[in-house]
């Protein structure tokens, strides 16, 4: 998995590319945690992620919790149907702010 991180209009946009599973989860977590600062607004564009395992769900949640703990905000966009379904089935979806598109995600972050 690759992790592209860029700043667009004062938003941090994180683009993971590849699967997020037990093997790649630490890369994702380390990368995102490194950019979290109090008050930061982070958009995670998941459109480059085709598969997320239970370990992937967990690392997303841990990251999200650490972010909200530092008063940062995270919004997920571009989840594919499979990931959306598994997040819904397992209830992980309830912890996140999810939007369909980048624009909607930006709007949600204000």
């Amino acid at each position: 998995m690759e992790l592209n991180i860029k700043t667009v209009d004062q938003l941090t946009v994180v683009e993971p590319l590849g699967d997020i599973d037990g093997k790649t989860a630490p890369t994702f977590q380390d990368g995102v945690l490194a950019i979290i600062e109090p008050g930061s607004r982070i958009l995670i564009d998941m459109s480059g992620v085709s598969f997320m395992s239970s370990a992937g769900l967990r690392v997303m949640l841990l990251t999200h919790r650490k972010a909200t703990g530092s008063e940062a905000r995270i919004v997920l966009v571009g989840l594919n149907e499979n990931i959306l379904n598994s997040m819904t089935a397992t209830g992980f979806i309830n912890f996140f702010t999810v939007r369909n598109t980048l624009d909607e995600g930006r709007e949600a972050l204000g």
Partner: peptide
């Protein structure tokens, strides 16, 4: 019995049932 069964992820299946019970 899990919608996530085809992902062959034991933890995911357990999560799905637990989420049902919780809801």
């Amino acid at each position: 019995y899990a919608a996530t069964g085809p992902m062959k992820d034991g933890t995911m299946v357990a999560d799905e049932l637990k989420n049902l019970v919780k809801e």
